[in-house]
Design a protein around this nucleic acid. Structure first.
Lengths: 354, 354
DNA sequence: CGGAGATCTGGTATCGATTGCAGTCATCGT
DNA sequence: ACGATGACTGCAATCGATACCAGATCTCCG
């Protein structure tokens, strides 16, 4: 690769002049320099540039699992904005593992101008080093206990879970199974709290045995559903706290031959590409995905350019109840239920948070 | 951040000695240096290191669309290996767009030690600059016309498509709709060729009107299915060349109220997480996904370490016919068909390629 | 015509690491 | 005791760009 000196020599100027031309300043021999650049197919060495300027034009995207459709969509959103900004994106998976996350974040110091992070655990000091190093951080979809001073893009998980509970309550259900995510993650905790709070508000108490802990991965949803269905008193409705666990749980129900919604109603958090085509079509709490990534990247851009100026921004997006056909009115199977409403359009209810 | 000089001063040695200690050489004051490193929480500046050594410890992963579950899985595989190797991964989407790909690849020169690329088009000279710059490239899932000298990890797309055709032929179908991917991409072309060749071999000719071109994205599958169903002579079976177009097509069939497999049999290339739970469960040609990413990363590692030594490796993985319930024997709806076989296990047929 | 001011220039230090080279010191054999 | 060998050491150059600074050139106006 040609260096800035090669360009300079060919154009009969100094490297300083070439550098200035590159930076867009007026230069007497601009034409000659430009010609030289093109003749040599010169492109500035970004590594050298980074060393001198301290700017890497790179950001880190650290998520639990890219193969989760939600995070894949987020990654797409982040990537689309970062391309426009001519920033590169380092992608890392933590596999929901706090240790791995720690190692990944350490490795990012000095290599990135900022980080978008979906932390594995709410209480974790993994960001301490980054913060000490002055690296801007935007939290994605998950809070951090000591992260009130960080920008974040969240969804109203508690509200969404409450919508799910209220929908099921409205259909007459009283005995719920909850497939929860880890309570030390934001979505796990808030969806648990939102769901149970809505039940309590209706005077319904969630039997601890009916709350099954999962880890947001598919298999844990499968196992949780098996345990729920093995209990002496049957649940009539199940809420799963994310997409992957929903898939696992539905698979379990399918293998057990449990009919949805006739025998048990099912609602999941997070929409799925194929939800509409399932049998029955899946009723879910849905939310923006790509947009979450876009917003996170925009916040990070502002932080990077403004260098920490201004108070932390907390964006909380609304969830939507998308009623399809997996929840049915209790005890009156040929009664009015969402599975029988021949809606040409899906019924959608948006919840506004404060 | 502390620099190597800070460490040196504190330990009472020169920066050279610290550097050597870092590189694992014997050094008299090793203990003092190590203590100094720990006291200052020193970590070497990777940017400076890259500048001097010319090694970035970073690779680029360039795919058409991370939010496609196939590429998301590939990304996961790539990422898992690269973490072990302590390499960072730049993720870029090209949106199936040749121009964008060109720009992305240009931007990678000098910033990465190698690239894993799923090219948008088979005939494209987008890699020319990278190759001139001596950057190792591994092709992923797609060939490049002038890329015989590049390592690649493919699946036997033609064989898989032939399996699909043979499966449908075996069920008595004669009138097929094909939702094809772009013929200037490897999967598009090979699946088209494999499918039609298998039909020709059985003496069946595919009416050009029954071949609908898509672009591998969901909406094109939707539109293609609408067009197919709008034709005067009804098709009895449809093959869609990838996952996203399958989803779109199934959605179209659903909206049109066309029953699968009673009215039309359906088979798709690429498995879907929820395929088993669809109504009917979807029969597909499936294949390794994460593993494709893992293999690509391993090939790239070898190239980077061996610096171009050795001939190009072409890995071609087998596809599998996974029979579920979306294909039915023709004209005898209560006859033996794959939808009625009460298989506790899915029926799976592996095809070995040469 | 001369000098203030604006405009442009190149030399050189710098970012933070690695590395070739020459030099210091201890050890060893004879 | 002395030179040869080896084990370490630090100086200084280097990677490729940017930025400060002083000097050179040009412009313009009194």
């Amino acid at each position: 690769m040609a260096t800035i000196w090669d360009v300079a020599r060919r154009a009969g100027v100094s490297s300083t002049t070439v550098s200035r031309h590159l930076a867009g300043q007026r230069v007497r021999e601009a034409a000659a320099v430009q010609a030289s650049i093109e003749a040599l197919d010169f492109r500035a060495n970004e590594v050298a540039r980074s060393l001198k300027s301290g700017v890497t034009r790179t950001i880190g995207l650290v998520v639990p699992d890219v193969s989760n459709p939600f995070f894949a969509a987020v990654a797409k959103g982040v990537e689309s904005v970062s391309r426009q900004l001519e920033l590169n994106v380092f992608l890392s998976n933590t596999d929901e593992n706090d240790e791995r996350e720690r190692a990944v974040l350490r490795g990012l110091i000095g290599r990135v101008d900022g980080v978008i992070l979906a932390p594995a655990r709410e209480k974790s000091d993994n960001t301490a080093e980054l913060r000490r190093a002055g690296v801007p951080i935007v939290l994605l979809d998950r809070r951090l206990e000591d992260g009130e001073d960080l920008d974040c893009v969240l969804v109203d998980s508690a509200g969404g879970a409450a919508q799910a509970a209220e929908h099921l309550l409205g259909l007459g259900h009283q005995r719920f199974g909850l497939i929860s995510g880890p309570l030390d993650t934001t979505p796990g905790r808030e969806r648990y709290e939102g769901f149970t709070a809505a039940l309590e508000a209706a005077g319904v108490h969630l039997d601890p045995a009916l709350m099954q802990m999962g880890d947001f991965k598919e298999d844990s949803g499968y196992q949780a559903a098996l345990r729920l269905l093995g209990l002496p008193f049957a649940v009539t409705a199940i809420f799963a706290a994310n997409n992957l666990m929903s898939i696992g749980a539905l698979q379990a129900l399918h293998h057990l031959g449990v009919r949805v919604p006739e025998e048990v109603s099912f609602i999941g958090f997070d929409d799925l590409e194929l939800a509409e085509l399932l049998s029955p079509p899946l009723t879910v709490i849905s939310r923006p995905t790509i947009e979450q990534g876009v917003l996170a990247m925009r916040l990070l851009r502002n932080r990077i350019e403004g260098k920490g100026r201004g108070r932390a921004q907390h964006i909380v997006l609304d969830t939507r109840l998308t009623v399809r056909g997996s929840c049915q009115r209790l005890h009156t199977s040929d009664d009015v239920s969402d599975v029988t409403t021949p809606a040409p359009q899906e019924a959608v209810m948006t919840r506004n948070n404060t």
